[in-house]
């Protein structure tokens, strides 16, 4: 009788432990993208209602957050001082999000274009060389032609950084030997010679 009781306790505790393990592994809580049966669309997270303003994101500076001035005209200059850090950040983001189509030089022969996507205009045409700085910000924010918008992938800061880097790419393709300080001209070509 006693052994049977002990066996029963053992079996029950093992069963309890096994069940406990599963409960702890899969807790009744929602982690990102875990589905839900509660809402009809099957998502546990609710989409943000249009027009929602997050705390601290009133974004009143229209020039900075839309690339356009109060009259809806694209701003010609960058609404901040472009520093080397911003350009490097822009290069980093450009290489992730833009190069698949625009390629690393901005001529528009990226891998996805080579596989059949519509060829975007090169950055090195007069229309885009003369385009206001706000143009690039606006295209990243709202998309243009075949290009979807990248507002989800790039914050306004990053969009401006990418726009600044595009400007740098444009200058890089027009540079001449006279743009290089005389003292550093000797270094040119040495990397290739190594």
């Amino acid at each position: 009788m006693r052994t049977r009781f002990q066996l029963g306790v053992l079996v029950l505790s093992v069963a309890a432990l096994a069940a406990c393990r599963q409960d702890m592994h899969d807790q009744p809580k929602f982690i990102p993208l875990r589905p839900s049966t509660f809402f009809s669309d099957g998502r546990s997270a609710r989409p943000i209602i249009e027009g929602t303003v997050a705390r601290g994101h009133l974004d009143e500076d229209t020039a900075y957050y839309t690339g356009k001035d109060a009259n809806g005209k694209l701003v010609a200059e960058f609404p901040f001082a472009v520093t080397k850090e911003i350009l490097l950040r822009g290069q980093n983001r450009f290489n992730i999000y833009c190069t698949p189509c625009h390629d690393y030089t901005g001529s528009g022969n990226g891998m996805v274009v080579q596989r059949g996507f519509r060829h975007p205009p090169s950055y090195h045409i007069d229309r885009l060389r003369n385009a206001p700085a706000g143009h690039f910000f606006d295209v990243i924010t709202n998309g243009l032609g075949a290009m979807q918008d990248y507002s989800m992938q790039l914050t306004p800061e990053d969009r401006w950084a990418v726009a600044a880097y595009i400007r740098a790419l444009q200058y890089s393709q027009e540079a001449s030997i006279n743009d290089v300080p005389a003292a550093e001209r000797a270094q040119l070509g040495q990397g290739a010679a190594k």
Binding site: P32, L33, P100, V112, R115, G116, F117, R118, A146, Q148, M152, Q153
Partner: peptide
């Protein structure tokens, strides 16, 4: 590290 929304797939697959 989010699973991309369908919109990101369609960046390219709207044409490819």
């Amino acid at each position: 590290a989010n699973i991309p929304p369908t919109k990101i797939c369609m960046n390219c697959h709207s044409q490819i």
